[in-house]
Amino acid sequence: MSNTPIKMNKLRQIIRLYCQGIGIKTIHGMIDTSRNTIKKYVRLWHSLGLSQEKFNAKSDGELSVLFCTPVGKNSGSPRMKHLESLLPEICKRLKKKGGNSRYVV
């Protein structure tokens, strides 16, 4: 399933093995998680600037908040805001029957 957050015990394994100097491909074989997922979480761990000790000291709830928040919801780009403002009108027009249901931007 795409974009499903991994379990925190698996995340802890990934970071522990990565800190031991084990490569991404080897970690992939050991814990049966895709290499791209491992890269994603290792990259996120680096961007947070957490040491392994601080990472291990955090609870599963704290790690979940740090690592599993949706990225797209926080972007707030102007294009996304414009699209969201158009959605109610688009939905209203799509519900109508007949030839006027197409929406032209």
Rank of each mutant, 00 (worst) to 15 (best):
T37W: 02
K96L: 14
K92E: 13
C68M: 10
V65D: 07
F67E: 10
F67C: 11
Y18R: 12
K54Q: 14
A57N: 15
E62K: 13
E53G: 04
G49I: 10
L44C: 00
C68Q: 13
L17W: 03
L87K: 12
D32S: 12
I15M: 08
N56P: 02
I38V: 05
H46Y: 05
K40W: 00
I15R: 06
K96N: 06
L94C: 13
K54I: 01
L66D: 15
M30K: 13
H82D: 09
L94G: 12
I14D: 08
D32P: 02
C68F: 11
C68K: 05
R16V: 00
L48I: 07
E89Q: 12
P88Q: 05
G29N: 14
K40E: 08
S47K: 10
N56I: 03
R93Y: 03
H46R: 10
L17N: 07
C68T: 12
G76P: 00
K95R: 11
S51W: 02
P78N: 06
K95F: 03
K54N: 14
D32E: 14
Y41Q: 07
K92I: 05
K39E: 13
L63A: 08
M80S: 07
I27A: 10
D60M: 04
I15L: 14
H28E: 14
P70A: 12
I27P: 06
L17E: 14
